[in-house]
Design a protein around this nucleic acid. Structure first.
Length: 646
RNA sequence: GCCGGCGUAGCUCAAUCGGCAGAGCGGCGCAUUCGUAAUGCGUAGGUUAGCGGUUCAAGUCCGCUCGCCGGCUCCA
């Protein structure tokens, strides 16, 4: 009895019924068989050793494919679990998935793993690989599975099984390890060549801080040792662009023991800050925003009215003035709302766009603080748009375009969008949430921007579109957000006078572009690895006189450049040129201007760029134009001299 | 907040079994006046995160507190 197997290229071949994908792969080429990790049979991923009983399409999945690598990593997690069970028989298994760049497995063990334990576990894994144990699997009905896992003391697996809806579940076994798993897996443990355990961390069972804390071991695995080495090298490189390290090395900011989560901006960091702020102001002005400033401390009663008291109190700081209770603002919206309410508003004046670089304070859990990325006080580039219901779409779209312009066009950053929906602890009725959520959804979809839905992650007053940026290790941070709010206007009884002379209820958008200046600067530091484009660079050019005799000329050059507000300084230290260049390079200063006898006589500077190297000499005036233009255009790459226009 | 790890000079790191706290870089001083990634010599710099304990003796061992790092939870 033969069955027909259709391959991805459309070709069809006959094989005996019950043939395995492994045999088919072997039939095609021994090389394919060697790299194969699983098969996709009629669209479903399965093991290579599973028998194929009917006419099917077949794709052999190899380790070179993303799915193949994922299977490899998932199998690595199982091998790690087996190693852990051998060394710590009392360990209970929780879950162990493949993740981006690796895998993890959560264990419940009486004592936490130490970093040294990882070495032992890794060594045991190597043994298991050596033993080349086969991965086998079978189906069993759920009730039986529950009994069996209960007998093994695998309480977490039992809990998972109890919540599953399928009648039949799939069980995998390799060596001594029996695990509840959908698969597929490698044919055998010997296929795992390149892996490494990276670190161990606590993780709550099911991500719930009320449940037990388990021990999570993270590891990574690749098809080849070369790929693993490359990945480890990238991790090291990423550590070098960590904004906390660069922040110290480039003297941009610091966080002192006296104020955990409260960053200090140094003179160099402040230059970046001011450049961003100038850019921010200019861009808002031309989009019809009006800048405001609202107080940092406001009466507690305001926060009760806004709902923060009920929904956000845990994150707030409080104080008392003249025996009356006040709160330090965690958000800027109530302040903007008070400004809106200060007078009667006409429909003619809407949309009213108030923007504010507002300093907010939030009590974040100590364990979550992270350099500039998560702090306890930060400046939001906030704005509140008060508008007619008919203006919702256009305003949302305007903000989406604004964010896209800033992220992509200006900074060259890639971002990911999430639509965050109603949280559990939310104000207002479901219908309003639905209306608001749909309005946001409609706006992103109209822009054809891909997005994921982040269920239950909205603000307590409204759903939001969140814009995430990546740091050097690929961790994502929420930066921009657009929140649509029907509820605050209600609570504060906001109104505008409509065409009909009657009072109507406006709708609000709360939005940020950078998110927080602090976080955005953190992202930029890592994105540029500290080598900021000229418009942001704390020092744009450093004049390096080759000897003391040329200090006067160096100063003349500096003055000339400073006339255009360029940030230039002189390295007047009594050191050799090579030394001064090295220091400027390490400080990642975009341009170095070497001046000596020749330059002083000709009125030129010898230009060196931090990446391009020696660019030869040019008249000071020409360099001035180049630098001015590079700064003004917010160029991400150095300009070519020939492109500079007068 | 929770789990684990870590904390020595401004920075990077040494200090054997519990036995005199050190080096390089950076800083400062002197010499040198130099042409595209490190000139030489000298010198200052420490409550070994803090508090308590064990010991003849603690950077080292124990306890507590603080901070940092990696995760989890949470969020701009």
């Amino acid at each position: 009895m033969a069955i027909k197997i259709t391959f991805p290229d459309g070709s069809v071949k006959e094989y005996p019924r019950g043939v395995t994908a492994a045999k088919v792969a072997e039939d095609i080429s021994s090389r394919l068989a060697k790299n194969a990790v699983a098969a996709r049979v009629s669209g479903v991923l399965q093991d290579l050793e599973d028998e194929i009983q009917e006419d099917s399409s077949l794709e052999i999945i190899t380790v070179d494919q993303p799915e193949g690598l994922e299977i490899l990593r998932h199998s690595a997690a199982h091998i790690m679990a087996e190693a852990v069970k051998r060394l710590y028989p009392q360990a209970k298994l929780a879950i162990g998935p493949a993740i981006e760049n690796g895998f993890y497995y959560d264990f419940d063990v009486p004592e936490a793993f130490s970093p040294e334990d990882l070495g032992r576990i890794e060594a045991e894994m190597h043994k298991i690989v050596q033993e080349n144990q086969e991965f086998t699997h079978w189906e069993v009905d759920r009730e039986t599975a529950i009994k069996e896992f209960a007998a093994m003391g695998e309480d977490y697996k039992v809990e998972l099984l109890q919540e599953m809806e399928d009648d039949q579940v799939s069980i995998y076994k390799q060596g001594e390890l029996v695990d509840l798993c959908r698969g597929p897996h490698l044919p055998s443990t010997g296929k795992l060549k390149a892996f490494k355990l990276l670190n161990v961390a606590g993780a709550y069972w099911r991500g719930d801080s009320n449940r037990p804390m388990l021990q999570r071991i993270y590891g990574t695995a690749f098809a080849k040792q070369k790929d693993l080495d490359e990945h480890l090298r990238r991790l090291e490189e990423a550590a070098r662009r960590d904004h906390r390290r660069l922040g110290r090395e480039l003297d941009l900011f610091s966080i002192q023991e006296e104020g955990p989560g409260f960053p200090f901006l140094h003179p160099n960091g402040m230059v970046i800050w001011r450049s961003l702020e100038d850019f921010w102001r200019k861009e808002h002005r031309r989009r019809g925003y009006q800048e405001v400033k609202t107080p940092i401390i406001l009466s507690e009663s305001l926060w009760q009215r806004s709902g923060h008291w009920d929904h956000y109190r845990e994150n707030m700081y409080f104080t008392e003035i003249d025996e009356r209770p006040y709160a330090i603002k965690p958000m800027n919206c109530p302040g903007s709302i008070l400004l809106y309410k200060r007078r009667l508003q006409s429909y003619r004046d809407l949309p009213l766009r108030y923007c504010e670089l507002g300093l907010v304070h939030r009590h974040e859990l100590s364990g979550t603080l992270h350099g500039l990325m998560r702090v306890r006080c930060f400046h939001q580039d906030d704005a509140h748009i008060f508008m007619l219901p008919s203006q919702i779409q256009e305003e949302i779209t305007g903000v989406i375009d604004f964010i896209d312009y800033v992220y992509r066009d200006v900074f060259g950053l890639n971002y990911r969008v999430e639509l965050s929906t109603k949280p559990e602890d939310a104000m207002g009725p479901d219908e309003i949430w639905e209306t608001a959520t749909e309005a946001l959804r409609k706006a992103v979809e109209a822009k054809d921007i891909p997005y994921e839905v982040n269920e239950g992650d909205g603000a307590f007053y409204g759903p939001k579109l969140d814009f995430h940026l990546e740091d050097c290790l690929g961790r994502t941070w929420q930066c921009g957000t657009i929140q649509l709010d029907f509820l605050m206007p209600e609570r504060f009884d906001l109104t505008y006078i409509g065409e009909d002379g009657k009072e109507h209820r406006p709708v609000m958008i709360h939005r940020v572009i950078f998110g927080a200046l602090e976080r955005f600067i953190g992202i930029l530091i890592e994105e540029f690895a500290g080598a900021f484009p000229v418009w942001l660079a704390p020092v744009q050019a450093r004049v390096i006189p080759v000897g003391e005799r040329y200090l006067d000329y160096a100063d003349q050059v500096r003055r000339q450049l400073m006339e255009d507000d360029l940030r230039v300084e002189i390295d007047a230290r009594d050191e050799k040129v090579g030394y001064k260049i090295r220091s400027a390079q390490l400080e990642k200063i975009p341009y170095m201007l070497i001046v000596g006898e020749k330059e002083a006589e000709a009125g030129t500077v010898s230009v060196r760029h931090r990446q391009a190297g020696d660019l030869g000499s040019m008249p000071v005036e020409e360099f001035r134009k180049l630098l001015r233009q590079e700064a003004a255009s917010m160029a991400l790459q150095p300009l070519d001299i020939s492109s500079v226009v007068d």
